[in-house]
Design a protein around this nucleic acid. Structure first.
Lengths: 246, 246
DNA sequence: GAGTGGTCTAGACCACCGT
DNA sequence: CGGTGGTCTAGACCACTCC
């Protein structure tokens, strides 16, 4: 019954979030000031500010200097493209049951483009997995994922059927970031057949490089998405802080 | 020559960032520990942590509990879709000179869909501006933007030729967030003509709701982008903190 | 065990907002 | 002006990682 670790900050965050979610704090409502919250939760003001920080980052709250802290009218969309890197989670969020079909697995030398984007030397090997993702048995995404062979032990190679994100976590290089390039393309004959859509129908192509926490590329993904299978959303925010550069 | 306000936090952030950018702190390098930095910059450790916080958020740095703070190998891409809402900035970033052609401006009642997404009542008015954005005179984006008429004074209506973001700022409802839905579509005859591309060629459609800091919708945009005009990038990050919800 | 980042406190003063 | 959030300090102790 015991929760793992619960810092005071998490505790305060949790309680404030609960009040937002259950409507005690309605959208537009002003929170008590930080001294009052510190007093109420029996913590220091610094702890209150730390707790509110993450709620503000997720756009649950808005602070206005010299005025107060207020409940926002719309939180960030979770499972948007920017907020997650998990495809399975996005499919599930859309209300479908995710599954997949592996088309091929191979170990080969990286192409020049792959070597460049994965920061590999000439001749280094990659493991490539080609799959079709299904949502309730309907094909929704075709993909080719490439991982540097150097990252995978023989033992890891046996686990290629599992989630590649889980695999990368398992070998000690968990994915924390990714940069995705999105482009509309027409379905080739092969993609049309795989995804069961008409030839030359529009598809969303996503070229993605997955990175560890310190920015090292560990996977290169090429994906083709059937439109309308589920929404591709992006949370955008205007720059505010840290705009030190041009 | 004097910069406006310079807090100690900004000062520390600036100095550390400078060392990262000029290579004094190379990718992978470990920073001095927080006590050492506090001593060196003659500030408290809390101030050091605050300064490092934004550099970590931008992925310039990585912290590993019990180990140290390190320079990342790749910062977040600026001018990616998630990191800005300014189109002009994105076009300029791609190395082109942005301009635009206004196709129409009208004041009319909101459609049901517009009323729903802009949180308006039945019969409320909107001001709609239809434009084509050019990059070095080449058409790259066609768009229709709709703003609730109630937000715009007569005086503001005279400024519809300026950036709509600047206009919304001017009337006191600056855009801070947006939620965009991306989908690949085929060019209709009209869009093909406007964007000077073949009929039925692939376009990126972006449906976007722009929000103020407290989450109120203030503009609805429909855009159609020519692929390859410039890259549409999205920075993605795996969830780590505040994952309190499902 | 030594060294690092993570959490937390109590208090101070500053900057901004509204009236 | 009073009230709010913004910045900052000096110090304490905890939790994690590596040797």
């Amino acid at each position: 019954m015991r929760r793992a670790r619960m810092t005071r900050t998490e505790d305060v965050r949790r309680q404030v979030l609960d009040e937002i979610l259950d409507g005690t704090l309605a959208p537009g409502a002003q929170l008590p000031n930080e001294d009052a919250l510190a007093d109420r939760f029996q913590v220091s003001r610094a702890t209150v500010r730390e707790a509110l920080r993450s709620l503000i980052a997720a756009n649950y709250l808005t602070r206005r200097h010299g005025h107060g802290t207020f409940v926002s009218h719309a939180p960030m969309t979770r499972h948007a493209l920017d907020a997650t890197v998990s495809y399975t989670a996005m499919i599930r969020e859309a209300g479908f049951e995710p599954s997949e079909r592996v088309l091929s697995k191979e170990s080969r030398a990286a192409t020049d483009d792959e070597a460049e984007r994965l920061d590999l030397s000439n001749g280094d090997g990659v493991v490539a997995v080609e799959r079709v993702r299904l949502a309730d048995r309907r094909p929704v995404v075709a993909s080719i994922d490439r991982i540097p062979a150097a990252l995978l032990s023989d033992e890891a190679m046996q686990r290629l059927d599992a989630s590649l994100y889980v695999l990368l976590d398992w070998v000690g290089t968990p994915v924390r970031f990714a940069t995705a390039r999105l482009a509309p393309v027409l379905a080739t004959d092969r993609l049309a057949k795989l995804l069961e859509v008409p030839r030359k129908s529009p598809l969303m192509q996503i070229e993605q490089v997955d990175l560890t926490a310190d920015g090292r590329p560990v996977m290169l993904s090429s994906e083709w998405h059937v439109p309308d299978a589920f929404e591709l959303l992006v949370n955008r925010r205007a720059p505010d802080d840290g705009s030190t550069e041009q």
